Lab assay of single mutants.
Amino acid sequence: MALNTPQITPTKKITVRAIGEELPRGDYQRCPQCDMLFSLPEINSHQSAYCPRCQAKIRDGRDWSLTRLAAMAFTMLLLMPFAWGEPLLHIWLLGIRIDANVMQGIWQMTKQGDAITGSMVFFCVIGAPLILVTSIAYLWFGNRLGMNLRPVLLMLERLKEWVMLDIYLVGIGVASIKVQDYAHIQAGVGLFSFVALVILTTVTLSHLNVEELWERFYPQRPATRRDEKLRVCLGCHFTGYPDQRGRCPRCHIPLRLRRRHSLQKCWAALLASIVLLLPANLLPISIIYLNGGRQEDTILSGIMSLASSNIAVAGIVFIASILVPFTKVIVMFTLLLSIHFKCQQGLRTRILLLRMVTWIGRWSMLDLFVISLTMSLINRDQILAFTMGPAAFYFGAAVILTILAVEWLDSRLLWDAHESGNARFDD
C-alpha cells in the first residue's frame, strides 16, 4: 500500500549564491595573561575582544583620537594649579581661619623630617597626573615632529594605576569627618577644581587605549598563520617573532617567553612588605597634641575612634588600611606557593584573586592621604596640633611594595603550573 505524501511548494523562490571570495581570516594573537594562541577576527570600533580561555580583555573598544586626548590633557593642565594650590577646605580653629590644600599637606610631611613619605604622596597625587598630561601632550606634538614615541607609550600603561586623584578625593571626605570634632569646616574653591580634575582624569584614563596608539604610530604586520613560536610582548602586546637582537619589532624591548626574574622580584617585594606591615600596624601612625597632652593612634585605634562619629567612614578606612593590605599579602603568598608547588586545582579562583588584588591594591594609600591633609588643617603649635607617627613611612612603603609585587608577577606562570593543553579552566 503506497502512502500519498503531499508536496510542499515554497511560496518564495530560494536563491543560492556561491561564495565568490575567501572568507576573511583572523590574525593570530597570544593572550598576555595566559599565553593562549588564538585567531582574533577583525574588530570594529566600539567592540571589545576577550581571550577565549581566561576571559582577559585583549582589545578595548573604547578609543579616543589623539586630538581629543590632547584637549583633555590641556584642560587638566589648566585645572591643576587651582586643584593643588587653592584651598580645598576652610576650618575655623580657636577663632582663626585655616586653609588646607594639597601642596601644603605634602610640605608639612616633608617639613617634619619625613621627606620619603611626603614624596610618596607627591608622586601619586601630583607627579603621576602631571606625567600623564605631559605624556599625552608629548605624543600629540611628537607625532607631528617625527619624534620617538616608544618610551612614552611604554610608560603610559604602567602609569595608570599610580594616578590616585580619586583616592585622594575620598581622603578629603575622611579628613573632614575627623577634623569636624575640633573645628567648623567649609569647602574651599580649590575643592571644585579638584573634583573637576578627578572627573576629567577618570574619563581620560578610561578612554586612553595605549594598544590602539601603538597600532597608529607603529603598525606591524600581524601573524596570519598559526605558529607556536609566536611570542607576545608584555610592553606593547604585539604578537610576532623577535628581531635579530631578540627584541620586539614594535617597542624594541627584549621579547622573552616569560617575564625575567618574575618570581624572585615578586618574592622579594612580598617578604619586604610583610616585614614592614608589622611596625606599620604596631607603631603610632598619627599623633595629636591637645592642650599640651599627647595622644597617639595606631591604624586600628584611629579607626575605632573614627567609628564613634561615623561608622560608615570608619568601615571604608578599615577596608583600605587593614583589610586590603593583608588580603593582598595572603593572596600573593598563596599564588606564589601554588606556582612553586605546581598546583593544578582552583586555577579559576587564583586568576580571579590576582585580578582582584590588581584592582584594589592602590586604595591602601588612602590613610597616607588623610594624614597629609589633616596635617595641613590642624597645626596650632602646642594648643592643638596633628602630626604623623613613625608607622606612616612603614605603611606607605608596604603598600608600594605590594603594588610592585602584583605588577611583577607574570600571570602566565600560573598556567605553566597548571596542566598543559587546557582550553578551559575551572575549579
Score class of each variant (00 low, 15 high):
D166R: 15
V179P: 14
K178A: 00
R231T: 12
A70M: 13
S262A: 13
E22C: 08
F82K: 06
M36F: 05
V170Q: 02
S376G: 04
A405Q: 04
R17V: 07
L404P: 01
A2F: 04
S376K: 07
K178F: 01
V317P: 00
V125E: 04
R59T: 06
E157K: 15
W140R: 09
L156D: 01
F141G: 06
A423Q: 15
Q55E: 08
W214G: 15
K342D: 10
P222C: 14
D166H: 15
M76S: 04
G61L: 13
G118T: 03
C124V: 07
A397K: 03
E157R: 14
L169V: 11
A70S: 12
A73K: 09
S273P: 05
R62F: 06
E86A: 06
L93E: 01
L276K: 04
L37D: 07
H237V: 11
I58R: 07
V198L: 14
V189T: 15
W415C: 07
P41V: 07
V329D: 04
H237Y: 14
V170Y: 13
S39A: 08
R294C: 04
L276S: 14
V102W: 04
L335K: 06
S376L: 11
Q264F: 03
V370F: 10
A83E: 03
Q244W: 15
V102I: 06
C34M: 00
F326S: 10
I136N: 02
F194I: 12
L153E: 00
E157G: 12
Y218C: 08
N310T: 14
V324Y: 13
A397Y: 04
I403S: 03
R17C: 11
I172N: 05
L271N: 12
E86P: 03
R380H: 03
I330E: 02
R25G: 08
F395C: 02
I126V: 14
L257Q: 07
H184A: 07
P81N: 08
Q295D: 03
S309A: 10
A100T: 06
D426Y: 14
Q112R: 06
L3H: 07
P279S: 15
W415L: 10
I199C: 15
T334V: 13
D27V: 07
V324N: 12
R362S: 04
Q7L: 06
G171V: 08
A269D: 02
D427N: 12
L409R: 02
R258T: 06
L413W: 11
T387P: 00
L377H: 00
G293W: 07
N291Y: 15
S376V: 13
K13I: 06
L156H: 12
L353V: 14
C248Y: 00
L40M: 08
M375A: 05
A196S: 13
S309I: 01
F38C: 05
L257V: 12
P129D: 11
R144L: 15
E157L: 15
V317F: 08
P390H: 11
E22W: 07
F141R: 01
I383L: 11
G85V: 05
S262K: 04
M109P: 02
F395N: 01
I14K: 09
A2D: 08
V331W: 10
L354R: 09
L255N: 07
G346K: 15
W64H: 08
I185S: 02
T402E: 02
S262L: 03
R231Q: 11
L414W: 07
Y168T: 05
L213R: 14
L77Q: 06
M164W: 04
I126W: 07
L149N: 08
M375E: 09
I322N: 13
G188S: 09
F38P: 02
P219S: 14
L79C: 03
T402K: 07
I177K: 03
V329E: 08
V329C: 12
I167E: 08
T15N: 15
I131T: 14
F425E: 12
A423D: 15
E407I: 11
R424P: 07
W267L: 14
L40H: 06
S372N: 08
N4Q: 09
R68T: 02
M365Y: 03
L40A: 08
L145Q: 06
F141S: 02
M103T: 05
T224G: 14
H237E: 12
S376I: 10
G421D: 03
V195Y: 05
R355L: 14
F194V: 10
N44Y: 08
P219A: 14
S305H: 12
L377R: 01
Q29N: 10
R59Y: 06
P32S: 07
G85E: 09
L409H: 07
N101L: 01
W408M: 02
Q108T: 13
L23R: 08
L200H: 15
T201Q: 09
I91E: 13
L66Y: 08
V331M: 13
E161I: 14
C266I: 03
V16A: 08
L37R: 06
F333V: 12
G105V: 01
I288Q: 00
A268F: 03
A18L: 07
T374P: 01
V152R: 00
K229C: 12
R221A: 14
M375W: 02
Q112S: 11
A269Q: 03
H252D: 10
F192N: 05
W363G: 05
N209A: 10
K160T: 06
E211K: 15
C31H: 00
Q186D: 05
Y168H: 06
V329Y: 03
S338M: 14
R380E: 00
V331T: 12
P87M: 06
K111W: 04
I274F: 14
G421N: 04
W415H: 12
R231C: 09
Q47D: 09
G190E: 02
M72C: 06
L94W: 02
N379T: 02
L3E: 11
R259V: 10
A320Y: 15
M147H: 03
L353N: 09
I131W: 01
V121Y: 04
L384P: 00
N4H: 07
G127K: 01
G235I: 03
A312N: 15
I351L: 12
N379D: 04
F326Q: 09
D381A: 10
T5D: 12
I96F: 03
R260N: 10
D427C: 10
F217E: 05
T110G: 13
Q220E: 12
W84C: 08
E296F: 15
A56W: 07
Q382L: 09
E228M: 14
M36G: 09
R53K: 08
C266F: 05
T387N: 04
I43Q: 08
T201D: 05
I96T: 03
I360T: 03
Q55W: 06
I116L: 12
I285M: 08
E407H: 04
M388A: 06
W408K: 03
W140K: 07
C124S: 07
I177S: 05
A175D: 01
I311M: 14
L282D: 05
G315S: 14
I400H: 09
P151Y: 03
L153K: 02
I403E: 00
P6M: 04
Y241C: 12
H237S: 12
S135A: 09
V170F: 15
G127M: 02
A269K: 02
A100N: 06
N209S: 12
P32F: 07
F194Y: 12
A56F: 09
L23C: 11
R59P: 07
V102H: 02
L88N: 03
K229F: 15
L132K: 05
A269G: 12
I351G: 11
D243E: 13
G246D: 14
P87T: 07
P129N: 09
A137T: 05
I330A: 13
A417P: 12
R30C: 07
P254N: 03
I322H: 02
C34A: 00
E228D: 13
V179H: 04
A385L: 07
S135P: 01
C248E: 00
W363F: 03
D410M: 00
P279G: 14
D381C: 02
L384V: 04
Y289D: 01
I287Y: 04
L89N: 15
F74R: 01
A18M: 07
V102D: 00
H252A: 06
R256P: 13
R260T: 07
A307H: 13
R258L: 15
L354D: 12
M147W: 12
E21G: 11
L145R: 04
V174K: 00
K342I: 11
I311N: 15
R25A: 08
R259Y: 11
A397E: 05
W84Q: 08
G61E: 07
A385P: 00
E86N: 06
H340S: 10
A70P: 07
